[in-house]
Amino acid sequence: MIRTCDSAPSDLELRISAAFEQREALEREDVRWRIEAARAPICTAQVDEAREERVAACTAPPPDDILVVLDASRSMGWDMTVDPEILQAIERINRQVDARGNLPQNLLNQYNRLVRQAESPREPDRIDAARDALSGLLTGLSQNARLRLISFADCGRVPREEGVFGTGDASAYRQTLDSVRLRNNTALAAALDAIPRLVTAGRTADRPAAIILVSDGEDSCRGDPCAAARRLASTLPHAQVSVVSLGAGIEANRCIAEATGGAFYEANNVDRLSQRLRQTTGQLSRDECEAIVDEEIAVEGQE
């Protein structure tokens, strides 16, 4: 039936009309909100405060008790700038090692060929770069500071205690770094588990400890470094582990820093390695720290 001009609107027509009015109201509210948001001043106070906190953390001096945990695995003899495809191929083979540490002959041949490529002389070896960067740490420490150096590698063996050094022991410290011998495997989890037996600091707030882990890869002894880091944090609640990862893209060890309240750094060249190690011991200037923090904020903004 056709409705005349003076007929009352039907329920359906009323509902349609109400829906249109509601939609128009929502659109008007959305436009109003966008205009107000555009007119609102941009608050930078919180951003500046967060940036300042990061700069302050970068320049903060370390505790007097410092432990350097140095990876002495064979891969530390590789070049600093190894082709990532070679590293990925080696890692794929490593995953096929059996419980006894053996590989089929064809994979072993392939592995040895890849390792020779990784060891071909182009840039300084990772261990040489680490020695050079670590040797400079003593000069920026306080007179009361003590730096203990341990190295780790072999499966089933405790880390080697290389020595304890003060600011006046630079020559002996460098000689010790140079004498660290590379071995097979990467017993990273075992090294973390051994730390509470090697240090007395880190158990109370009045005597904190700074632990610096320098490594280029994952645990290869069927250990769980993430779980070991959680155990370490429970035993030494006032010890922070800063992880300096030699090479890019090695994220597996980030959990160690996160579990202990430390920081995770990547160092894929010699200059970056030296800078990151100085950062872990509060030896960078404010200008250097501001440049690092601004770079990190810029990268985070792109993610």
Rank of each mutant, 00 (worst) to 15 (best):
R197L: 15
D30H: 15
M80S: 10
I42N: 05
D64M: 04
D178L: 05
A8N: 07
R286C: 08
E258C: 07
R39P: 04
I256W: 11
D98R: 13
I297Q: 01
G217T: 06
A38H: 05
D132G: 07
L147W: 12
E21I: 15
T176C: 01
R113P: 00
R230N: 05
Q143R: 09
R32A: 13
L87S: 01
D219N: 00
N184I: 04
C5K: 15
S73L: 14
A205I: 07
Q110W: 11
D64V: 04
R126S: 08
Q302K: 08
V244Q: 03
G140V: 15
Y111H: 04
R183H: 15
C155K: 09
L273E: 00
D206K: 03
P63T: 03
V293Q: 03
E36V: 02
A45S: 06
L87T: 07
S234I: 10
M76E: 01
E123G: 12
G163D: 08
D224A: 05
I90L: 11
Q240H: 12
T204E: 10
I211T: 13
I297T: 01
G166Y: 07
R157L: 11
R131M: 04
T281M: 05
A191P: 07
L182Y: 03
M80A: 12
T59Y: 14
A25K: 13
L198H: 03
R28G: 09
I66R: 04
E162A: 02
T81A: 13
E295I: 00
A60W: 02
L26Q: 10
T81N: 11
P124V: 15
D169V: 08
L26A: 10
I35C: 10
E290G: 04
A19N: 10
R286Q: 05
E258A: 09
A129T: 10
R74I: 03
G77S: 12
Q302W: 00
R231A: 00
A145N: 09
L246P: 04
P237F: 06
A89C: 02
G168W: 13
Q283L: 01
D6V: 10
Q105L: 12
I212W: 01
E36I: 06
E24P: 06
V115W: 05
G202D: 15
Q22D: 09
P9K: 00
D65L: 13
G282M: 08
A170F: 08
L103E: 01
R230D: 06
A267N: 02
T260K: 10
L273C: 00
A37N: 06
D216G: 12
A229F: 04
V68I: 15
S274D: 14
V241H: 14
E53S: 00
A60V: 00
R222C: 05
E290C: 03
T4I: 15
